[in-house]
Design a protein around this nucleic acid. Structure first.
Ligand SMILES: [Zn+2]
Ligand SMILES: [Zn+2]
Ligand SMILES: [Zn+2]
Ligand SMILES: [Zn+2]
Lengths: 131, 131
DNA sequence: AACAAACACGTAATGTCATAACATATCGAT
DNA sequence: ATCGATATGTTATGACATTACGTGTTTGTT
């Protein structure tokens, strides 16, 4: 099954392909290095593409790593996304949880706080790496 | 009630005082600038003090801001701490929530993931700033 | 006291992540 | 064809963090 993607420009496609094929989160500068053979020369070429891909929801930024991953969800995100990040192999899984989301929003409302964005990241060791 | 603090060195005390008196999260370099009059010259002086203060649990690092705050809890942290960060005034509140913590741990266990650390940060607008 | 280990500190250099500023090019609608 | 919006190329700079090396200070042991 192929996702119907928004039209991506050349640079956006290159960055997205790079992230999609990676097995772990990549920093913008790592992406830059991998795309030098395609003519990339400067960080801004990467960051601009990343910005658009983030807007489209095709990728995510992991705040605790200063790195980026292609989205693994085939469905639209609803509520807060929880990122589960293995520190050994770098694998990143993502999940949405109604209970977590509702509880966070409830606690925010209680204190009259308007949530504009939420970050939830679990760092640790995945099943495969624990064997 | 005064906390019984671990013995802090001169540099650690200076950094902790700076953070304690701040009304918003501070970056390491902002702390450095504020402590130049006290003889601080290099980022490492700040980062080393921050490391120790983090170990002692006296301060927290906000991953989504690359900045630090003094802990506002008078009690020991149990489980995941949720940081609630106002983007207007910079105020940071922290709370612990059993439901959020248990649900996150449950979802981790389900997928055989061992959590080593969890980060939860809500960005938005606080009650005072919404008036 | 003498010694050694552990810890804290000072300094310079470097590494890593991200954006500002400015110029040029491409595309699409009128 | 012209115009506005978007995308791109390039250089420089800003912001966050660590490596490497040397020195000083404390502490526990002999
Ligand atoms: Zn996703
Ligand atoms: Zn793993
Ligand atoms: Zn705290
Ligand atoms: Zn506020």
């Amino acid at each position: 099954m192929t996702l119907s993607l928004p039209d991506l420009t050349k640079n956006q496609s290159l960055v997205f392909e790079t992230l999609s094929q990676a097995e772990a989160p990549l920093s913008a500068y790592t992406i830059l290095d991998q795309l030098r053979s395609e003519g990339f020369r400067a960080p801004l070429q990467v960051y601009r593409a990343l910005d658009k891909l983030l807007e489209h929801g095709l990728i995510h930024r992991l705040e605790s790593l200063n790195a980026f991953v292609a989205c693994r969800h085939s469905h639209k995100h609803q509520g807060t996304t929880v990122f589960v990040i293995c520190g050994r192999c770098g694998d990143v899984d993502e999940l949405t949880d109604q209970v977590v989301n509702d509880q966070l929003m409830q606690r925010a409302v209680e204190r009259d706080f308007t949530v504009e964005s939420a970050m939830v990241e679990l760092r640790g060791c995945c099943g495969s790496c624990s064997q």
